[in-house]
């Protein structure tokens, strides 16, 4: 290492190894960098759980591992978007538990999120249906209607 340019390249290699699945650069302790990679995924799982409490709760003790399987090699876009992307992936495979389906519907009714840039609040009313409820957003207020049920 001789200067700022080398440092920039070396730092980028290390970040890519930690969050994007790139190989661990030569000379680093593979076990310790691997432990750091796992610790980063645990931290991200906690951050996503704060934004998506029903998604995390639906998997209970399996949440950190479930999140880590999906997130390994996928750099973070922040806890909000990471959880959004994972929830959409799971709902597409029919693997999302009911409470989390509703959490996703509430978010989708209130916000426009294209999966590639920051979510933006919807200005127009929106309606989303889940197997157990209808989610209605008008003027920024979201209501969850359960036909035939309470609440």
């Amino acid at each position: 290492m001789t200067g700022g340019h080398d440092l920039a390249a070396r730092q980028a290699e290390l970040v890519a190894a930690l969050v994007a699945g790139a190989p661990i650069p030569a000379g680093f302790d593979q076990r310790l960098v691997g432990a750091a990679r796992a610790a980063l995924l645990r931290k991200r799982a906690g951050e996503v759980a704060r934004h998506w409490p029903l998604l995390a709760a639906a998997f209970g003790p399996r949440w950190p591992a479930t999140f880590a399987r999906w997130a390994a090699g996928r750099p973070t876009q922040g806890g909000l978007r990471d959880g959004w992307d994972l929830a959409r992936t799971l709902v597409g495979r029919d693997e999302l538990p009911a409470a989390a389906v509703e959490e996703l519907a509430v978010r989708d009714a209130g916000w426009r999120y294209d999966g590639t840039s920051a979510p933006r609040r919807r200005r127009l009313p929106a309606l989303r249906r889940t197997p157990g409820a209808v989610v209605l957003q008008v003027a920024g207020r979201v209501r969850v209607l359960r036909p035939g049920g309470g609440g």
Partner: peptide, 19 residues
Amino acid sequence: RAGGMEAGHLLPLPRTRAA
């Protein structure tokens, strides 16, 4: 962060003159 990618955590520096 480096190379346009966020680490999501505080990463150590090499203990070098350049750093």
